[in-house]
C-alpha cells in the first residue's frame, strides 16, 4: 500500500497509509474503535474505492485488475455477511467458488471437491446440510471461513474474525488460518490475540499507522498508553514461550504512585 487514503465521507477515515504485507505471514491490524481498520480492509477486497493512493498486489494495481480476478486472489471473512436467505452450510461455502465459475455459474466436480475439502478443514463437514440459520455463532464463523478458503486465496482478509466468539472458538479461527502458507491480514480487537498469533502487528491510530513491527518489540507500554489509553505488560507465556499481553485500565495508579517511597 502506498500513500493510501480512503473513507466514506469527505473526511477520510484513513490517510497516508504506507504498508508492506509480508507474504505467507499473519499480519494483525489493531487500533481503537474508529481508527480505520475496517475501512482499510475494505479497500483491499474492493468494497470501498480509495480516494487516492495505490494498492499493489505483487506488481499489479489491485483496483485496475478485473473484480473476479481479485476475488480469486483475495478471500474475505467479513463482519456480517448473512443475507436474509437461508442457505445450507454447503451452499454458503460453495458461494466462495463464484469467482472461479464460468458464465452459467455451474459447479463442476472440482469445485464440489474444493467445497468439501474446505468444509472438512474448518471442521464443518457434519454441518454441511444444516441451514446456516440453525448454526451457533462459532459454527457460522467457521462456515464463513470455509467460504473464504474456498476462494483459494493467496491473501486472506479477516475483519474482526473473533467477534462474538467464545475463547475456544477465537483460538480455533486463528489456528485455522495461521501457518498455511496463505498471507493473512486480520483486524483484531484483542491485543493479546494479536501478540500471541501475529508475525507482525500494525497499529492504526486516527487513520494513520502509529507503528508496525513484530509484536514483542512493538507492543510497548508507552505505545499502548498513547494509542489505546490503557496500561499493559508484555509477558512471555510460561508454557509455549510466545508473547502475551496483559492489560489493565489506565485509572488504576501504578505501584510506584500507590506506595511512595
Amino acid at each position: 500500500m502506498r500513500g493510501l487514503t480512503a473513507g466514506w465521507t469527505s473526511v477520510p477515515a484513513v490517510s497516508g497509509i504506507d504498508l508492506d504485507i509480508a507474504e505467507g505471514r499473519l499480519t494483525a491490524l489493531v487500533g481503537p474503535n474508529g481508527s480505520g481498520k475496517s475501512t482499510l480492509l475494505k479497500t483491499v477486497y474492493r468494497a470501498l474505492r480509495p480516494a487516492s493512493g495505490l494498492l499493489l498486489l505483487g506488481e499489479d494495481d489491485l483496483w485496475r485488475l478485473p473484480r473476479r480476478e481479485v476475488a480469486r486472489t483475495v478471500g474475505v471473512l467479513g463482519q456480517d455477511q448473512h443475507g436474509g436467505f437461508d442457505f445450507t452450510a454447503r451452499e454458503a461455502v460453495a458461494l466462495g467458488r463464484a469467482p472461479h465459475l464460468g458464465p452459467f455459474g455451474r459447479l463442476g466436480p472440482g469445485d464440489a471437491a474444493t467445497v468439501a475439502e474446505c468444509l472438512a478443514a474448518t471442521g464443518c463437514a457434519e454441518l454441511a446440510e444444516r441451514p446456516v440459520s440453525t448454526l451457533s455463532g462459532g459454527e457460522r464463523q467457521r462456515v464463513l471461513l470455509a467460504r473464504a478458503l474456498a476462494q483459494r486465496p493467496r491473501l486472506l482478509v479477516l475483519d474482526e474474525p473473533t467477534n462474538h466468539l467464545d475463547p475456544r472458538h477465537q483460538f480455533e479461527v486463528l489456528e485455522l488460518v495461521r501457518g498455511k502458507g496463505i498471507t493473512v491480514i486480520a483486524a483484531l480487537h484483542s491485543l493479546d490475540l494479536a501478540a500471541y498469533y501475529a508475525d507482525r502487528v500494525v497499529v492504526l491510530h486516527e487513520g494513520t499507522v502509529a507503528a508496525a513491527g513484530p509484536p514483542r518489540e512493538l507492543l510497548t507500554p508507552e505505545l499502548l498508553r498513547r494509542v489505546f489509553g490503557i496500561e499493559a505488560s508484555l509477558l512471555t507465556d510460561p508454557v509455549d514461550g510466545r508473547p502475551r499481553l496483559l492489560i489493565r485500565p489506565s485509572r488504576i495508579p501504578s505501584v510506584q504512585e500507590a506506595n511512595p517511597s
Binding site: 477486497y45 458461494l95 455459474g105
Partner: peptide
C-alpha cells in the same frame, strides 16, 4: 436461470458480493 448464482451472491449484500468479485 443462467445468472442464478449471481442472485445467490447478491443476497450476501454489497460487501459480501464485493468479496466474491461482484459489483
Amino acid at each position: 436461470l443462467a445468472a442464478a448464482n449471481r442472485l445467490n451472491v447478491l443476497v450476501l449484500g454489497d460487501e459480501g458480493a464485493a468479496a466474491l468479485g461482484m459489483d
